[in-house]
Design a protein around this nucleic acid. Structure first.
Length: 805
DNA sequence: TCCATCCGGGG
DNA sequence: GTGTACGGATGGA
């Protein structure tokens, strides 16, 4: 029979000593089904000098275990390795686990390759199976022990249509502790568990209590089994929690074993399995620990330095955890206090709801990446950017008959760490204020360089192609890149860029399509991470030469634009990596637009310089050590908006008054070009500070607490403030924003820190705010106008003093 | 100061 | 399960 099938998860099992791949997913009606495929045999590859001898040696290999482990058969195949066609031996074995047993012994025969690629992952990649996309399956129904209908596969082919939702179930457990410390599974019980899915909401406990959605069972053993029943009843594709691999699931596993409770939630009735790391495996359900995903991927776009559920949810959902005193909860549990326990159920449900909402937020992107790379959700969500690139490359390699290079050994990694190289070019700006600025930047600079200059590990510095190669500029030693043939990675990047352009066209027609957005984002991520991947010490396709050449071409192209800008009569104000800031001077905007067209005609491949924006003025300031400061400037748009980059006081650990003064000075300087007016403005603020006429709210300093106050050795003002909060019985936790005001008096600043609600207006330390907040925020701005704002203000101080005398 | 180990999150 | 994070902070020599 023929079936339509959307794969979600994969694993394998042994039947009569032979591996059977299990693919879990849904059919066209949305019903969960399982496919079994026993046609795939594990193998590894060997490159040897003499294949006839090596073949005999491989067949004679054996390792004694409970059974004799050996190579079952050997095949020869022509494949591409490091850009060359080679004849390789494929050594087939009985079981996936035989590979690591035999690979060490096979090292004496030749170079062992592809002996470290997981069997089920390899199955997906080799068969072009892509999770969550439509497949046509020729199969026949079989009777096996699974929770779903089961079919034996005869053939499976990938089609284009794809699934855009998965069934998510979030859960969170609550545990009891008599010691006041974090509960531990060998001693403490699970007392409550909440589960939330699409139209599904349940909280389970084993002491009498009243609450909506609440189920009360007899004891902890029944609780664990009721959780199992809830999961089976809901039938999730994705089971998700927050730190569930590090806490909830191992806790459940240990308690279930101790109490003899069944937690056989797997599609094949197996329970939780744990591997050597922290991962917990569930057969047929994608187990996704959101904390892992936050740490690996989301962190780069988060403000918060700590990844607690509360701080991540507050930032991304605008909603946090309910505050709870665990000692009170545990007392309520001991006493059977129904009212308190019902509040605790609210807490449990809120945590689970936040987890569910975060999962809804993250899943489209995880799904987009799973479809692109072709690995199941439970595998992709935990991959770092370099691993995402690597798995994309592995899929491409398998499909183009290439042998994947091995990961570096320990010694190789160590020697790679020492191979550093020069990065991007940053133009040192001349401090000053400029009018009529045009900014251009290169679109996806490194990806387009890789594609345009054919950069790939097997195309750089290869002797055979020297005659037909491109020389690399900007480097002291000689480097060259083959023009032919097309490199593995450069070709792949070009395909990604082109595909992404097409997807972006589709998005224009269908802007609200989340799946298209996710696909576009996945393509962008892989393209942008490839340069970093080539220089990553753990990479299979590592090439420090390629990475060095990419940044060299980057510097070359931006230098070229700088030179041509000068020749065309523009003033070059600034440049960083892929962008250039030009002063128009007497030129017209149209001339700048034409100039970009001329540049683009000379750029190779898909490289493109793009008009980024026009600014009516901008300021570059001096660095502390002299010269112009890099990555620190402000621009004024035509609409009058300020675009500020790199000034420390833009961050939130400055008082409102420092920030607003800086902004106003920037505004006066950029809009009105009037240094005197700006000076007068600062003097006015200084006077107000001295006269204590500013409201205290303007003086509040906000700093994020990185850890618990007791954990600090150096007690900074914000730590002192946090300790004060604790003394007043307020909750203090890492990641929170602490607010304080520095008040007048003698001694250390930290001893003069007060909380905003303790300070009446006018008691603040005006000297501190003038010298440590306001003046440092504007000093470098005035320096560009050759005005010493500190001296100006001191004159004012004296004259104020003078007027008193 | 350098190197190695520890930690994150979770109740 | 054919694999094994990572980057910063801490602490000891």
């Amino acid at each position: 029979m023929e079936k339509t099938f959307y794969p979600v998860e994969v694993s394998y099992t042994l039947k009569n000593g032979k591996p059977v791949v299990q693919i879990f997913g849904r059919d066209e009606t949305g019903k969960q089904v399982t496919l079994l495929d026993d046609r795939y045999t594990p193998h590894f590859k060997v490159l040897a000098k003499d294949n006839d001898i090596a073949e005999k040696q491989l067949m004679n290999l054996h390792v004694e275990r409970e059974r004799t482990v050996g190579v079952v058969s050997v095949e020869k195949a022509n494949m591409t390795y490091k850009g060359k066609t080679v004849e390789v031996l494929k050594a087939f074995v009985e079981r996936p686990a035989d590979v690591p047993l035999l690979r060490d012994a096979a090292k004496s025969i030749g170079t062992v390759l592809e002996a470290d690629i997981l069997f089920s992952r390899r199955y997906f990649l080799d068969h072009d199976i892509r999770p969550l996309t439509k497949h046509k399956v020729e199969c026949e129904e079989v009777q096996e022990k699974y929770r779903t209908p089961t079919y034996a596969v005869k053939s499976i082919t990938h089609e284009s249509d794809s699934l855009d939702t998965v069934r998510i179930l979030a859960f969170d457990i609550e545990t009891y502790s008599s010691t006041g410390k974090l509960p531990v599974a060998h001693r403490d019980p699970i007392i409550m568990v909440a589960l939330i899915g699409d139209g599904f909401r349940r909280v389970i406990t084993w002491k009498d209590c009243e609450h909506d959605d609440l189920v009360v069972v007899k004891d902890e053993k029944e609780l664990i089994e009721a959780v199992r029943d809830a999961i089976v009843e809901y039938g999730p594709d994705v089971l998700t929690g927050y730190n569930s691999d590090g806490y909830d699931l191992p806790f459940i596993k240990e308690r279930a074993e101790k109490l003899g409770a069944a937690f056989d939630i797997g599609t094949d009735y197996t329970g939780l399995r744990k591997n050597r790391t922290t991962d917990v495996l569930i057969t047929g359900i994608a187990n996704i620990d959101l904390l892992t995903y936050v740490r690996k991927s989301v962190r780069f776009s988060l403000e918060t330095p700590v990844f607690t559920l509360d701080s991540v949810a507050k930032e991304l959902l605008g909603d946090g955890k309910i505050e709870v005193d665990f000692q009170e909860v545990f007392r309520a549990w001991e006493n059977g206090d129904k009212e308190q326990l019902s509040k605790f159920a609210d807490y449990n449900l809120q945590d689970t709801d936040l987890t569910y909402r975060l999962a809804e937020l993250f899943l489209p992107n995880i799904m987009g990446m799973a479809k692109l790379i072709g690995l199941p959700l439970s595998h992709v969500y935990s991959l770092s950017y370099s691993q995402l690139v690597e798995w994309y490359l592995l899929r491409e390699a398998f499909q183009s008959n290439r042998i994947a290079p091995s990961r570096p050994g320990e010694n190789e990694s160590i020697s790679r760490v020492r191979e550093r190289f020069e990065g991007a070019f940053v133009f040192e700006p001349k401090p000053g204020i400029y009018k009529d600025i045009i900014v251009f930047d290169f679109l996806s600079l490194y990806p387009t360089i890789i594609s345009a200059h054919n950069i790939s590990p097997e195309t750089v510095n290869v002797k055979e192609c020297k005659e037909n190669s491109e020389a690399v500029p900007e480097l002291s030693e000689e480097y060259w890149v083959c023009k032919e043939p097309r490199g593995f990675i450069s070709e792949m990047i070009e395909n990604i860029i082109r595909t992404r352009l097409k997807v972006k066209e589709e998005i224009k027609k269908d802007p609200d399509n989340k799946m298209l957005q996710a696909r576009q984002l996945a393509l962008k991520l892989v393209a942008n991470a490839t340069y970093g991947y080539l220089g990553f010490v753990g990479a299979r396709w590592y090439s420090v030469e390629a990475a060095r050449i990419i940044t060299a071409f980057g510097r070359h192209h931006i230098h070229d634009v700088i030179e041509k800008s000068k020749e065309a009569g523009f003033e070059v104000l600034y440049s960083d990596t892929d962008s250039i800031f030009l002063g128009l001077g007497s030129k017209k905007r149209e001339e700048a637009e034409k100039f970009v067209d001329v540049i683009n005609e000379s750029l190779p491949g898909l490289m493109e310089l793009e008009f980024d924006g026009y600014y009516s003025s901008g300021i570059f300031v001096a660095a502390k050590g002299g010269g112009g400061a890099k990555k620190r400037y402000a621009l004024l748009t035509e609409k009058g908006e300020l675009k500020i980059k790199g000034f420390e006081t833009v961050r939130r650990n400055a008082s409102k008054i420092a920030r607003s003064t800086q902004k106003e000075v920037l505004r006066i300087l950029l809009k009105e070009h009037d240094a005197e007016k700006a000076t007068a403005y600062v003097k006015k603020i200084v006077t107000e500070l001295k006269n204590h006429t500013l409201p205290a709210e303007e003086l509040v300093i906000q700093t994020q607490l990185q850890r618990d106050p007791s954990q600090y050795e150096a007690i900074g003002p914000h730590v002192a403030a946090a300790k004060r909060m604790q003394e007043q019985g307020k909750e203090v936790y890492p990641g929170m924003i602490v607010q304080y005001i520095v008040t007048a008096g003698k001694g250390r600043i930290r001893d003069r820190v007060k909380l905003p609600d303790e300070v009446a207006n006018h008691v603040y330390d005006s000297e501190y705010y003038i010298n440590n907040q306001v003046l440092p925020a504007v000093e470098s701005l005035f320096d560009t106008m050759h005005v010493s704002i500190v001296e100006e203000v001191e004159d004012k101080k004296q004259s104020t003093l003078g007027s008193f005398l």
